[in-house]
Design a protein around this nucleic acid. Structure first.
Lengths: 220, 220
DNA sequence: TTTTATTTTTAGCCTTACCTAAATCTTGAA
DNA sequence: TTCAAGATTTAGGTAAGGCTAAAAATAAAA
């Protein structure tokens, strides 16, 4: 069964908002995420229900089906593989990839994705540190902690960001807090939760709690 | 000014059918090429006229404008660059690339194409031997001759095909007459125009005139 | 030159994916 | 427990890109 580009986008949004089908999602949430109106969402939910990628009872809410999860994970897989391609092969900066990957993820060709995956050496994580589902939709995720939750002297590696707005990514790039950077907490100010961090054993960085909240770290 | 995917496809068809604006094209020709009906074409011609990529006088015919040529060449450039990528980097066979490139050519991102071009080392020809326009739409084409027009003892290199149907491409692949193959005419049968050819200095190949008509050779 | 055949265009309809405005359902507060 | 606020859905409309059937223009043939 084939989904249109719009349907794929809605399904992906639902998958993300529901945290993979765990949390419940409202019509308004979806409208906000997709930059559309609630009325348009209602309409689309009916269609997605008919295609059986969600189970939809009006006024009561929705539930992603197994089929829906497979479709969503497939789209996410394509998005993240293209992001890896853009950064590793075409030297895009990580704040430039999202918009293009958003288009590339809708190219239909199983062979293309299989070959791309192989060409990129079966990457497990995208440039933002998010895990790439395999062709069966399986995800190996690493346990991650927000940078602001770490204590003085703890160490780790930056593996993902929560806010992937271009402004935030550019800021991180500027201060050298790239994905993969090894960090150590040097000091933590109790008053405002701000941090002093050692990056890659050389650069010292001062960071507000607001920024730290949006950085995910794999502790070591 | 932005064109939709459908508009880009029509414009590309018009560009090809008119041989770059030289020949005149009929509504029915376009309908046949696009697998749509004449009524749909009329409608689209009106729209393309409004966007000034063609000059359109109803019942009289159309003429691609300079702006239209730029748009068409840009789409052709993208299509052919993606074909090079698919064949050279992802190991697609040349009879598998067309459909996927047909989708990829509509991705909008000037940066992507610029980087892709550089990543592929600014190729001048696609896997079928067709020239790739540069970013200004300029094309360096090589003088090419149909294989059936060559005489005994002449040599050259296969650089393009006229019929790019999957069936034809598969046939060529099977017999080893790939793009880039060096060939020499060993014998030519006057009666039916069929040829005996030496491929890459090792393989001898017998070929009907019908097939030879569809193969373009750069003589040497 | 008239008539017929062919090509092209218009008219009117369909689907997708959006919209606004109005109706309807659910829920939380009195 | 009733009722207003808030969320959700329906009703009806738009634009793009298709379609068929009918009308109009051009081209060809008698």
């Amino acid at each position: 069964m084939e989904l249109t580009t719009a349907e794929e986008n809605y399904l992906k949004a639902i998958y993300h908002l529901s945290d993979g089908g765990k949390k419940s999602v409202s019509t308004n949430d979806i409208a906000a995420e997709m930059n559309t109106k609630a009325a348009s969402v209602s309409d689309m939910l009916r269609k997605l229900g008919e295609k059986e990628v969600i189970e939809y009872r009006k006024y009561y809410g929705l539930q992603i089906t197994e089929s829906g999860k497979r479709h969503a994970l497939q789209t996410i897989r394509k998005h993240r593989l293209w992001e890896v391609f853009l950064v590793e092969k075409l030297n895009f900066a990580w704040d430039e990839v999202h918009e293009v990957a958003e288009q590339l993820e809708h190219i239909h060709s199983p062979l293309l994705i299989q070959r791309l995956d192989s060409y990129l050496n079966y990457p497990k994580f995208d440039p933002h540190g998010d895990p790439i589902p395999d062709e069966f939709g399986d995800v190996r995720s690493r346990p991650r902690v927000q940078l602001n939750e770490m204590e003085v002297d703890q160490t780790g590696q930056i593996v993902a960001v929560k806010d992937s707005s271009a402004a935030f990514l550019r800021y991180l790039d500027k201060v050298g807090a790239y994905i993969g950077a090894r960090i150590k907490i040097l000091d933590k100010v109790e008053f405002d939760g701000s941090l002093e961090i050692l990056v890659d054993q050389k650069k010292t960085l001062f960071m507000s709690k607001e920024v730290a909240c949006n950085i995910l770290v794999l502790q070591s």
